[in-house]
Nucleic acid binder design. Structure first.
Length: 211
DNA sequence: CTCCAGGAAACAG
DNA sequence: CTGTTTCATGGA
């Protein structure tokens, strides 16, 4: 089994994940930019369960503040109270302020990485899901699954991205879907403490043979 | 109670 | 340059 086989198998099993989740109706009604929801969500979900991010996003919506333009001028204390459920709220409020002042539609990766609080994964999530740029998102799940399923381990973020991109065709929709499917598998079976029982990869996962 | 979640920066050695 | 700690909430 190679990386493309894994992708096809995950897709067959779980179907399209329809990432990134965006409330387009909200943005149509409030005349705000749907990309902002992806950018804000990408920051809020740093080391945080998505369930908690959803609460923060709902709070922002209730104040018509799911928008970088609104966040830019919003009182910092109010912002913190709205995003509190997503954790790290003091830090994240500063990151949101920073990005709301520096974001623009043809932003480059290096420029994103220069914003304090935006690391490689967050930058690539924004570039891929908000701007349809061909960056493969590498997160803790991706590393975990590569190591368990293929017994492959690197030191650097860029090594993971380079390797994966060398194994599949450059296709924006594949990049988007593959990452979403990896998250799905990681949440269903490939948890930190693996639930191999019932996992679709039971027959071909290196982890099953090496333990 | 402990552990973990769609990380990143600061800090220590 | 590599490993560890800090940041915080909420659910299992």
């Amino acid at each position: 089994m190679n990386l493309l086989d894994l992708y096809n198998r995950l897709l067959e099993t779980f179907g399209y994940q329809n990432w990134w989740p965006v409330d387009y109706d909200y943005h149509k009604i409030h005349k705000t930019d749907p990309k902002d929801e992806i950018i804000i969500g990408a920051i809020l979900t740093q080391n945080t369960a998505w369930k908690n991010v959803e609460k923060a996003l709902d709070n922002l919506k209730s104040k018509h503040a799911l928008s970088l333009n609104v966040i830019k001028t919003m009182d910092i204390n109010l912002l913190q109270s709205l995003i509190r459920p997503a954790g790290f709220f003091k830090r994240k409020s500063l990151i949101l302020k920073e990005i709301s002042n520096n974001m623009h539609d043809n932003i480059k990766r290096d420029e994103l990485l220069n914003i304090k609080g935006i690391g490689k994964e967050t930058a690539d999530s924004i570039l891929l899901y908000a701007y349809d740029k061909p960056y493969f998102v590498i997160d803790a799940y991706t590393k975990r699954i590569l190591e368990r399923v293929f017994n492959i381990k690197f030191k650097e973020y860029d090594e993971y991205a380079f390797f994966i991109k060398s194994q599949v065709q450059e296709d924006i929709n594949l990049y988007k879907e593959y990452h979403a499917l990896i998250v799905k598998l990681a949440k269903e079976h490939c948890l930190k403490k693996p639930l191999c029982e019932g996992c679709i990869l039971k027959d071909s996962c290196e982890h099953m043979f090496t333990k």
